[in-house]
Design a protein around this nucleic acid. Structure first.
Lengths: 112, 112
DNA sequence: CATATTCATAACCATATGATTATGAATTAA
DNA sequence: TTAATTCATAATCATATGGTTATGAATATG
């Protein structure tokens, strides 16, 4: 067993994912995409409170982390949330099996 | 409804939490605490692969985020994982109610 | 063709962050 | 009391990060 595989918390994909989620502006963008569905950069810029280039960069980071998809149509780029991308987060939280899972279920009631 | 409460993704606590989790070394420390239970800095340093001061700083950040507790005993400080601290992450993932929750349940099978 | 729109990238800046070594405070042990 | 242990903090450094404005490439429109 290698050092890498033994220590799942240092997995590169997981790292990228958590890093992508660690910024409020990016989480807000993601939330918008989940709420409103596929959006282009222009629309996301208006709702984001930051400049268009910054939105593009945030979206690029979300894409690299697997949290959004991009679809180019003419001069517009349409971004959409990629729910599956959260898989590693779930997996990380379940990493110790029963321990987290129990709390997990217990806390799921919070969602309402 | 305030701007703050409307935009849950920019909540300061959530931000601190995700930021705390966004570093592999910190996640590894947290994993160790979950697996092995309460540990002092010395023990955590040996398993972390970074210097003792860095471990102290990472632990401080985890503590500020509510993910660990610290108990001073003589010259040693014993840190423990604080499972409840993950609440906001769960909450964030459930933020859009049914949408995430469905995927949530679907993905929970991954944990095995 | 000329102009406007949409987006990404470049250049730049300030600050945050992860890491190190050095140091110092507090506690324990000799 | 002197020495060793444990931990946190300071000083320092390199790099990453979030933000801006400027620019340029591609596409659509007059």
């Amino acid at each position: 067993m290698t050092h890498e595989s033994r220590n799942a918390d240092r997995d590169a994909a997981t790292d990228a994912l958590f890093k992508a989620l660690s910024d409020g502006t990016r989480r807000a963008l993601l939330e918008t995409l989940v709420r409103e569905g596929e959006q282009n950069v222009q629309a996301l810029t208006q709702v984001s409170g930051v400049s268009q280039p910054m939105v593009s960069r945030h979206l690029a980071k979300l894409k690299r982390a697997g949290l959004v998809t991009a679809r180019r149509a003419g001069r517009e780029t349409w971004y959409a949330a990629r729910v599956k991308g959260l898989g590693p987060v779930i997996q990380w939280m379940a990493i110790h099996g029963a321990l987290w899972s129990q709390r997990f279920s217990a806390l799921e009631g919070l969602s309402g």
